[in-house]
Design a binder for these strands. Sequence first.
DNA 1: GGAGATATGAGATCCCGTCATCAGGGCGGG
DNA 2: CCCGCCCTGATGACGGGATCTCATATCTCC
Lengths: 371, 371
Amino acid sequence: MQSCSQTIPQTFAVPFFFFIITYSIIRDDYFGMKIHKITIKDVARELGVSVSTVSRALKDHPDISPQTKQLVRDLVEKMKYKPNAIALSLRSQRTNIIGVIVPEIVHHFFSMVISGIDEAAMAAGYNVMFFQSNESYEREVMNIQSIINSRADGVLISIAKGTKKFNHIRQLLEDNIPVVFFDRECDEIETDKVIVDDFEGAFNAVDYLIKTGCRRIAHYAGPQHLQIGYLRKRGYISALEKNGLRVDDSLIIPCDSYEAALEVTRNLMARGNPPDAIFTTNDNTAVGTLNAVKAMGFKVPEDISIIGFTDGLVSTVTDPLLSTVSQHGFEIGKKATEILIKRINDECVSSKPITEIVKTELVIRNSTRRI
Amino acid sequence: MQSCSQTIPQTFAVPFFFFIITYSIIRDDYFGMKIHKITIKDVARELGVSVSTVSRALKDHPDISPQTKQLVRDLVEKMKYKPNAIALSLRSQRTNIIGVIVPEIVHHFFSMVISGIDEAAMAAGYNVMFFQSNESYEREVMNIQSIINSRADGVLISIAKGTKKFNHIRQLLEDNIPVVFFDRECDEIETDKVIVDDFEGAFNAVDYLIKTGCRRIAHYAGPQHLQIGYLRKRGYISALEKNGLRVDDSLIIPCDSYEAALEVTRNLMARGNPPDAIFTTNDNTAVGTLNAVKAMGFKVPEDISIIGFTDGLVSTVTDPLLSTVSQHGFEIGKKATEILIKRINDECVSSKPITEIVKTELVIRNSTRRI
DNA sequence: GGAGATATGAGATCCCGTCATCAGGGCGGG
DNA sequence: CCCGCCCTGATGACGGGATCTCATATCTCC
């Protein structure tokens, strides 16, 4: 850990002016002084007018003459005066900060969501305060405490796998901080939610496989205590039933990782009457499946079709390219943020919580046959 | 607006009335008004002591009797009083916020870095304000403006590809906001940096290829105006030279994406005297290369070895598994944050900027031959 | 009884920007 | 000449805490 890093002092060849700046900084620090930030008083003093005048000029108050306004605006520009956001927050009781908690950022889907959050927040002039629960309940509670303490205006959260109590979320709502769930929600809490249509996504994927002529379709299922695992399986079953195909329990196999897929697939394909298609609960599992069947000499998609879920980066670099169900993480983040900001602005304070379902999209690449 | 501040009477001394206030808060909420947060004054009034006493009790001031301290602590617990971080920031001129700017979060390496940042920041009691430049200079400037406005205590930044001017970074330093670069740095700015040892990583990768018997090694190079692209190429060249191999310029090809690799590789492998190994500037390019050579009937690693850079998720799901150079993104984020926090706390204010180099690690999987 | 310690209250100050109020200067029109 | 208008200054409150000073009240001990 430590050994992989080393400290190297930088060569000290800098222009002359740099010394001067550095020196004055050191001197101020040496005397324990804070570096002075430009305040409205500095602007007023510099221009020889009162603080009120500057304040009014910047607010475009009708009392102030156009000439003075222009003078003030010019000087403000020149002196790079920025109103102190902290003082503003103290007075307005708003921080323009959105707290975001994700289980794990190292996850293509969540990083897409955050990207969407960033986009929408920036567009609306909000800053994003970021937290990671690492799938831990305790950590999540700490994160919420930090959010409360920093007086964020609202919270976006996807709950951790380890979270089974929800008092910390309730505390947010009691403090009148709006909360919007994304992806991983919680039944017990009445608030806005933006979720993925796992059922329909799975249904469409399997329905497509059937349309391309597949008849023995296996499903590698995720953990059934999570909504996402459960709903994807239900979608799979529903598509079979709608098309009059028998649901064969021996073709529904718990399997949700690359490594597991290698193992499971070897066994599955070696037994009599192997499937002609496999629908996996996520992309990594699909890639494992793909590699396993290829290693056994099967042709994809001629001998067997494979379709994943969660359009991650991996699906765009496999051979053949993986067909999958895209989750529009960016859209989810953006949507959730927009809803949150509306709540913050009380635009729909009296309305009931809404649940927005972001549709999945079937992305047909080359691991499935064509219709 | 004003009316809501007048709805809550200011002077009450009897506990009974406190509950009335609480009730009126709920009613205020119903009418869409701001909810009342517990302040030190509420605690003082409830306990029938002065604000000073509560403040001193919480700070464990020796003037206050143990009994009073206990009473205060109990009530604070019961009323869930939290000191207003905004008021604290206003006075202390510290926000306990670290601003973080990454080019793109949807990138395994950067999400690992952010994970490390989150870890270190949380451990030190700092909050992370997150920004994404989307590789755009303009966006980066806006992000820095937001950071300055929100009075963050320090900044961690990996500069965008599109950034060629650095006045915005200088502005941070002039405002006495410490800056630590990670991964993508900038020569012109004298400040702390935590960077990847791209040169050595590339050198080791190519040196390993040579040790396994490869003699005609191609390099798919990244943009040369970026340090990371340049240094990886230098490492490649240096390894060839050290091993007495001729550097063939026709084997150094600009190529840094999956799609480009498909195209480039088809041409490269079709011409006479194709290479027996390819070192790519990143993993996605390596995967494109891998798929292209496999499609042309070459065996990996028997006919040709392939090695990438940046240990992303893709390298763990290819067939064969991709050998690559791992970057320790988590370590980089953690280290950068620790250095930044030291600077914020003036622990090394007079010391020169340091450049910390985090070593890469060669991860040998199955796309390269064994020694 | 008075000095001194102890515990607390009351109030000011600071951080910074906003906003409201009141006071006034200067100038033009009636 | 004065009223009123336009513009501006001076001042203070406010938001919420920390912190400091000074004034009390109570109690103890000599």
